[in-house]
Design a protein around this nucleic acid. Sequence first.
DNA 1: CTGAAAGCGCTAACAG
DNA 2: CTGTTAGCGCTTTCAG
Lengths: 355, 355
Amino acid sequence: MVGASLKDVAMRAGVSVRTVSNVVNDFPQVAPETRRRVQQALEELQYRPNAAARLLRAGRSGLVGLVIPEIDSPYFGELASLLVQAAQQYGWTLLVDQTNGDPDRERLLLDGPPGQIVDGLVMSPWAVSPAELRRRADAVPLVLLGEQDAAGLIDHVSVDSVAAAAEATGHLIGLGRRRIAAIGVQPHLANGTAQQRITGYRQALRAAGIPHDPALEMPVTALHRADGARAMRELLEGGHAPDAVFCFSDQLALGALRAALDHGLAVPDDLAVCGFDDIEDGRYGTPSLTTVAPDKAGIAERALSCLADRLKRPPTGAGRRRDPEVPSGDAPPPARRIVAAHRLVVRESTVGRPG
Amino acid sequence: MVGASLKDVAMRAGVSVRTVSNVVNDFPQVAPETRRRVQQALEELQYRPNAAARLLRAGRSGLVGLVIPEIDSPYFGELASLLVQAAQQYGWTLLVDQTNGDPDRERLLLDGPPGQIVDGLVMSPWAVSPAELRRRADAVPLVLLGEQDAAGLIDHVSVDSVAAAAEATGHLIGLGRRRIAAIGVQPHLANGTAQQRITGYRQALRAAGIPHDPALEMPVTALHRADGARAMRELLEGGHAPDAVFCFSDQLALGALRAALDHGLAVPDDLAVCGFDDIEDGRYGTPSLTTVAPDKAGIAERALSCLADRLKRPPTGAGRRRDPEVPSGDAPPPARRIVAAHRLVVRESTVGRPG
DNA sequence: CTGAAAGCGCTAACAG
DNA sequence: CTGTTAGCGCTTTCAG
């Protein structure tokens, strides 16, 4: 006893499957009396439309996927949660998967079951290049998250990292700091996040006439607390002690903060610390963390609305026909680059306790 | 140009779909030469098996679902990440969804697209009762996470929360504390987590001959930092100042910690704080947090191995026939209750800085 | 307004 | 070893 099919319901109600289908899908052209009978049969048999069959035939599952490098990681966690909720507004169910930044897994999720079953995908790529993603975007409507330079190839939403990093650095400069370190350089990653943030950082220094010291730009392998702590320790032990540090993520900042405290430094008096992401831990730690807050809700909302626009076009399913000779009438709309808002949130780690 | 089907490949290779299917599924009985030809056609046409069709026909998608109340929330985030990785060992792709503890959404995910498309489900229910879940477990193999009393109805893995809470409380008592508060009572929730932890807490107090003071047992509406901070403030302002507090989650503890610090208390001297979950924030905060560490990797591994056992039984797909008259030979194995390990991790929030 | 029937892409009897 | 074919459950065209 696994589930009743349309046929079962049709037999019970004494109608054809067509009519049952019409009722299930709320099509108007059904006589009230017929509809009633069908609905009763539906109820009695506990009918649930088979998602696989629907998908095969209609090419729509009502599912959208979110593919991110790490689910644990407060930033992506918060974003995922917001996307799940935003998706409900569109009548979609959002499913999340994790790549760990592994290129093979990024490809697998795109090509395999999740990518095929889903009506559209929101993805934050770390390893696969925009050009390669572009090819898959023919198969699944795709919206990218993050700063990688998709160069107009794919729909894409992110904050202006260059400007945000410049603001954060400017805030530190405004506090009178001069030896400002940057933690979070990641030359090996395909996504341009770190690249853009270091650019903004340097811009702000230059604008203030502060010479740029490469020894203060710390690379990391990942954006976690441990990496931030390690970088801070190196800075402190290397004799390059800064009087402020701008970290490319809150997790890095939290790690750096802990390392500085362990080192006997007072924050913010000896060292001002600024992060990026505005995760919850930063708000409740001691001292609380000054940070760049991307408009996460806005990012979620705009990513999905962007996806919704793509999905207005014909579904990829059933009646589809792949005929290279006959180009599909109207060209797809050009890729969009959406810039989400951000703001600098000043807290204790740069200005101390109020009162 | 959406994708080549088996038929397309068959035509190109000059064989039947059967043979192509055999090659794709790595069946041995294919002549080497034929196999080669087919493989080439596969390659040229960039063939990807259609997941929907496969699922419809074979009743297997290779996907498993994880349904949790909140994706943001470090504990579930870490668990989700571990489950994603463990699933790869089994050749499954794990998809995560969030319910916010909403009963309707819990049901929806079980009945609708995600629940139907997936081969099995790992779920941490908050609102739907075990009895109701039991009914759905006929449709999807289901493994529960957390403490709710499934009473032998459904496979189920969790730590021994009573014992763990007693250990944590015992640690506080061993430190010489006597006015030990508990933060995290949740009488309204269907999952028995809070209930079990308060039970362990009281057990430990009783064992130490410490009278139990209801004014020290603080209810919360959610397990977040803000709730922990609020409860702590009430405790402090209500004149019931404790000398120690056991919080039912690390997030609560982190919130309580911040509130205590804001209040001018020294931790652990004036107030010792212990949490539950061992999330990363607790390890890197100042002071670092003493906590009960559930063996998350073990939970993930055992949940999936449990699911794997269920999946050895016939798939729910295609050839299935629902005939109430003919009971399916062998009864399903009885529900299992798996207890995962935990240990108390002592850090600064109860014993101060070492050295 | 409703029925009959084709077929989405795949797997797996059932032949040969 | 390989070909033919019957569906899985659904949507949808085409007729009434």
